[in-house]
Design a protein around this nucleic acid. Structure first.
Lengths: 215, 215
DNA sequence: ATCATAGGCGAACAGACGTTCTATGTCAAG
DNA sequence: CTTGACATAGAACGTCTGTTCGCCTATGAT
């Protein structure tokens, strides 16, 4: 039951926020028993009781006797969550330069990687590479990982970047620090020491925005 | 079943458009029987049959045995339907057992991690932990990474799992292999050797589904 | 102390719901 | 013609799920 002042009681708020979260996670409203378990309320009848109160308070609508028949009545409920599909344009491995795709390549990519927009910010210039081989272990990146890259963007000192070393004909992922004519490449693994290369033999291909590993 | 050319059969299209319409109108996916009635299909088993086909065709996702457990997989409609928000229930680090949340903890988590549903499959039992410290470098997991875990699920040999070693009072992420009374723990880094512990002093807390690193 | 009231709890019920099994039909390949 | 893969119906089963009802406890007035 709502308090006189229009506030919700504590179990009601608990139920409400549980429903909200559940819908976010499952795209389907919860059952009464799921609400019970999720909120720690001891009986289904109590949940039912509180739901009736919430309905009276015009906070949600119910369809009688229908499973999961709950609809939250939140006019200003915003879903900030949005998903971006990032094209997987190629492979990055030890013995080949990582591709830096042009617009054509981006459009024609067959595989895509879905990722929450809030994780990566703007989709501008985003592309993904699949990691092949164990050569990037020292960047804590494994065979099969997906790295989300951003091209056309200034890569700052300290950023994790894809670097192609011309003399070795090898792509690598390292944190980069420009130091005059040379480039400091720092492995992610703190037990490994950084090393230096001539800046002219290193092509910086893009910044690593995010790494995703499925196990 | 999809036709060879990737087109959907006529009943499949009917079902799909019915679901779309129903969700638009009711904010909740329909039940199988409602689909049956709404499309004029004569049997629930036929609906189930076609739904399986649609799932195979990657047009929609289903949650087994859950009422109204349908999510349409429409590329144009992806925004909020295909993203799950996984609660971040705590921290995993060297010197503390990783939390294994009960329903209460899941419901009360404040921070969440958005992740594409297609990356993790079912949301069932999913939770996230933030990695603190460098102790899991050998699992190629860095300070600040987010690991997506699944609880209440059998952890199979070869799975990457969160293991708490009682005698060392330490949580770790390793691939596990049960070998009689002992447990083989294998670091992700192929240059490191596996080691063995008494199975009785190791608590397996969940399976790592996915690792996410923002750089 | 007695009684009324409200809140809370758990069991039980009836219907909803997803799944599965069997039987039948269709149609193309061998 | 036979076989096997696919499609369709109908029914049965077991679980899920919303609802209800009886019982208990606490509180406060009589």
């Amino acid at each position: 039951m709502t308090k006189g002042n229009g506030q919700l009681t504590e179990p009601q708020q608990k139920i409400l926020s549980f429903i909200t979260r559940y819908v976010d996670q499952n795209n389907v409203p919860p059952t009464i028993r799921e609400i019970q378990a999720g909120t720690g309320i001891s009986s289904t009848s109590m949940v039912s009781y509180h739901l009736k109160a919430l309905e009276r308070a015009n906070v949600l609508n119910r369809y009688e006797r229908r499973s999961r028949g709950l609809v939250i009545n939140e006019p200003n409920r915003v879903h900030l969550l949005d998903i971006a599909t990032v094209p997987i344009v190629g492979v990055i491995g030890a013995s080949a330069p990582a591709p830096t795709p042009d617009a054509d390549a981006l459009a024609s990519a067959e595989n895509t990687m879905p990722i929450a927009r809030s994780l990566v910010g703007s989709v501008e210039g985003l592309y993904a590479l699949e990691v092949k081989g164990n050569s990037m272990i020292d960047a804590l990146i494994n065979d099969g990982d997906i790295v989300i890259m951003r091209r056309d963007q200034e890569v700052h000192n300290g950023d994790l970047a894809a670097v192609f070393l011309i003399d070795r004909n090898e792509s690598t992922l390292k944190r980069i620090y420009r130091e005059g004519k040379r480039l400091k490449l720092k492995p992610e693994n703190p037990t490994m020491k950084p090393f230096y290369v001539d800046a002219r033999i290193a092509q910086i291909h893009g910044r690593v925005v995010c790494v995703i590993r499925r196990t």
